[in-house]
Simulated scan of single mutants.
Amino acid sequence: MKPLAIEIQNLRKTFGDHTVLHGINLSVHAGTVFALLGPNGAGKTTLIHILSTLVAPDEGTARVAGFDVAAERNEVKRSITLTGQFAAVDDVLTGEENLRMICRLSGLSAADSRIRTAELLKHFELMEAARKRVKTYSGGMRRRLDLAISLAVSRPVMFLDEPTTGLDTRSRRALWDIILQLKEQGITIFLTTQYLEEADQLADTIAVISGGRIVATGSAGELKSRVGGEVIELRNADNEIIRKVPTDGSILDISRTLHELSSTLPGETRVSINRPNMDDVFLAMTGGTEVAPA
């Protein structure tokens, strides 16, 4: 089994009268992609900020790359990269100039900075735009540049806070490919996301956070199995989902469920039986539908 890159025990954080994190316990194995999935305000960004030493926890412990985030902050900083929700790039500079600046600030010589910049521009498919000002970049290009800057110096753990927010489908999938390539290089990726498909496609392990508490942890397959064997999906005349109900998939259970529901639903209601997906997992674990964990 791979060693742990991140270890979190009973982590708590309160801002004023509002408790954001209620005793978080998590572990992330090295060289894997870990997705923290949850709605706005669930505590995702606060947890990332604690793990990257930007915010101190009130209680509990957290270790990143073997170092305590409170007692060994400098060692943690030297072991991680962090990409926030908004691209941290200079619009006035070109993509190439942004990268060279960060390489120099990271301690590389002028010659090594040129070499590393060229490598990153090629890897993130930014060669053609290298000498254009960043203010002319599309959202996807800016995000790729932001990731490239995060990798100016290779470090074992990378935090990505909602890395594809606001991107179109093509740009989002291009970034997925890059994240999987980083995993192949042995980098541990800890990402937060609201995109259910993103967690499904990328993560070896997913944790669902709701109201500052971890309500479920496992692989995508394991979490889907907790929702139930099948889901009865009910749609109205406009083909909008109005209700979801778990079922074991047997004729007896499906018949019983539909009989119980028939008196409360309009006659034009359409019924389909589907296997649970990450939408069902998310809504079930965060209390968003009639579906409940099995």
Rank of each mutant, 00 (worst) to 15 (best):
Lys2Glu: 14
Ala5Lys: 03
Glu7Leu: 11
Ile8Trp: 05
Leu11Asp: 04
Asp17Leu: 13
His18Pro: 00
His22Gly: 06
Asn25Glu: 07
Gly31Ser: 07
Thr32Cys: 10
Thr32Arg: 14
Asn40Trp: 12
Thr45Asp: 05
Thr45Leu: 07
His49Trp: 02
Thr53Glu: 08
Val55Phe: 01
Ala56Asp: 11
Arg63Gln: 09
Thr81Gln: 12
Thr81Gly: 15
Gly84Phe: 03
Phe86Asp: 05
Phe86Ile: 09
Ala88Asn: 12
Thr94Arg: 12
Asn98Thr: 09
Leu99Val: 11
Arg100Gly: 07
Met101Asp: 03
Ile102Met: 11
Cys103Tyr: 11
Cys103Met: 12
Leu105Asp: 05
Ile115Arg: 15
Arg116Met: 05
Arg116Asp: 05
Ala118Ile: 00
Leu120Val: 03
His123Asn: 13
Ala129Trp: 08
Arg133Ile: 02
Thr136Ala: 11
Ser138Glu: 11
Gly139Lys: 00
Arg143Gln: 06
Leu145Tyr: 05
Ile149Pro: 00
Ile149Ser: 09
Arg155Asn: 03
Arg155Gln: 07
Phe159Lys: 01
Phe159Gln: 02
Glu162Ser: 01
Pro163Lys: 04
Asp168Lys: 08
Thr169Pro: 15
Arg170Ala: 12
Leu175Gly: 00
Asp177Phe: 04
Ile179Ala: 04
Leu180Lys: 13
Gln181Leu: 11
Leu182Ile: 00
Lys183His: 09
Gln185Tyr: 02
Ile187Phe: 06
Leu191Gln: 08
Thr193Leu: 02
Glu198Leu: 07
Glu198Trp: 06
Asp200Pro: 03
Ser210Gln: 10
Val215His: 07
Gly218Asp: 13
Gly221Met: 01
Gly228Trp: 11
Glu233Met: 10
Arg235Val: 03
Asn239Tyr: 06
Gly249Ala: 08
Ser250Asn: 11
Leu258His: 04
Leu258Glu: 06
His259Val: 08
Glu260Cys: 00
Leu261Thr: 03
Ser272Pro: 01
Ile273Ser: 09
Ile273Pro: 05
Arg275His: 13
Phe282Cys: 03
Gly288Phe: 07
Thr289His: 05
Val291Arg: 03
Ala292Lys: 14
Ala294Gly: 13
